[in-house]
């Protein structure tokens, strides 16, 4: 037997209301994350990537001296850490967003995707603030960003597509199987070391570079460094000279489409499964 739920809605649709909801949820997420902390939330949102950056910088310039000979290693490292922190933070929070908003889902109807998008936007606020830190470091190091710097917007759009796609997929899977939290955390660790965040790609033996460059995180981090910092950064285009070069750019689009449609199909059952 077929089942239908016919809704005769207003022409023009309720999209402004949904945009409004999206904004409120995103801002609430952000505010609540740092509620009850002694320092203001903004300070804490800088603290995590800065601490990671500080530790890595010390280890790789003073202890192991991996970055000693690399030009602008500090800025390069910082860009990588900031972008990675966003991906990690947004996907982990996106994954749990549906389950954590269970009360809302059981009691109110609105497109469920709004919750996941709001969560990724909320992490995006932190990313935007972290870019202020990056700018301060540029000034402090006396480095002028390249003229191609505005292209960073395209790189960020790609990162956002990848993040949102992963979040959709993970959020829907997490409703069914809570183990995905641990699986994803393992995956993130692998991905972190499989991406040239702490080490320069030029240190990787040449025969592995092609393989590594297929990873969209590697491509995003390298492209970000290339447009902001140095034209000599090895990006995917410089490494792969076959049609395979489109792979890392296609992955975010595919992940976003697959993630969204999987999420959309699963969403009808969320209210009963949470």
């Amino acid at each position: 037997m077929s089942s239908t739920l016919k809704r005769v809605a207003l022409p023009g649709g309720p999209s402004p209301a949904y945009m409004n909801l999206l904004r409120e949820l995103a801002v609430t997420d952000y505010k609540v994350k740092y509620q009850g902390s002694i320092l203001s939330g903004y300070v804490w949102s800088f603290a995590r990537p800065l601490l990671l950056f500080g530790v890595l910088y010390f280890v790789f310039t003073r202890v192991i001296k991996l970055g000693a000979g690399v030009p602008d290693y500090a800025l390069s490292l910082l860009i990588g850490v900031v972008l990675w922190t966003y991906f990690l933070d947004a996907t982990v929070r996106g994954m749990t967003s549906i389950v954590e908003r269970g009360d809302l889902i059981r009691k109110v109807y609105f497109p469920r995707a709004i919750i996941v998008i709001a969560s990724s936007v909320s992490s995006g606020i932190t990313l935007a603030l972290n870019f202020v830190v990056v700018a301060v470091f540029f000034v402090a190091s006396g480095v002028t960003p390249r003229l191609t710097a505005p292209l960073i917007i395209l790189v960020l759009i790609e990162l956002y597509a990848l993040t949102l796609g992963c979040s959709f997929l993970l959020a829907a899977l997490y409703v069914r199987l809570r183990d995905f939290r641990h699986i994803w955390e393992l995956g993130l660790q692998l991905l972190f070391y499989a991406s040239p965040i702490i080490y320069p790609l030029s240190f990787v033996p040449e025969r592995y570079r092609g393989l590594l460059s297929l990873n969209p995180i590697a491509q995003i981090v390298q492209d970000a460094r290339k447009v902001l910092l140095s034209s000599s950064t090895l990006s995917t285009i410089d490494i792969i000279h076959s049609p395979l070069v489109v792979v890392p750019y296609a992955i975010p689009v595919i992940v976003l489409l697959v993630g969204y449609f999987y999420f959309d199909a699963a969403a009808a059952e969320f209210a009963e499964q949470i």
């Binding site: 037997m1 077929s2 089942s3 239908t4 739920l5 016919k6 809704r7 005769v8 809605a9 207003l10 609430t28 505010k31 609540v32 509620q35 009850g36 009360d103 809302l104 889902i105 059981r106 009691k107 109110v108 109807y109 609105f110 009808a268 059952e269 209210a271 009963e272």
Partner: peptide
Amino acid sequence: GIYRPTSGRVVVVGRLSPFIELGVGFNAEL
């Protein structure tokens, strides 16, 4: 629209207020 019917049909004509319970989505920390 929170649950999907297993079978049968629901037709709603007009704008429907989505609140089922009071205080949904309130955040105690705000």
